[in-house]
Amino acid sequence: MAKNQKTSYKTVRGIAFYLLFPAFILCLIAPFMHKAGFEGTQYFSQEAFMLPLIGTGVAILLAVPKCTSRYAGVVTFLVGLASLLSFANVSYLYLSAVFFNGMAETIFGMFEQMGIHYTFCALAYLGAMLLGIVAMFLPATKKVKA
């Protein structure tokens, strides 16, 4: 037996990589929901629309190459956070109008009051942010025996 034979490994995707897929999808759909629900009103801005799209593009570019995919999680978290804050900043007064005269007593009632577009965007960005956080602490790649 050759004592000096080396074991070869290959790098494969880790769980974090797969966790980011739904985050990317959410961040790509949410801006269009935002646009569909609020374009033409004061609750929409081009910055809030473009930020998640550009940010998600960057995150995808980082996620694809295995050498940089470990950074996609933190970028996804930052994109989710920034998108959520940007969306909130431009549309929080929508909530003040909707809830001005009272909130429903149940969560679902409140979601119904806010409407599908607002609810989807808020939950999507929040979800993307949380998925990014989880992905940060899990391996994006791992070495397995070839």
Binding site: V98, F99, N101, G102, M103, E105, Q113
Partner: peptide, 13 residues
């Protein structure tokens, strides 16, 4: 269990 029952709400709507 009788008495006013909210189908939707209570709230703005």
């Amino acid at each position: 269990s009788y008495g006013r029952q909210y189908i939707v709400g209570p709230g703005l709507y």
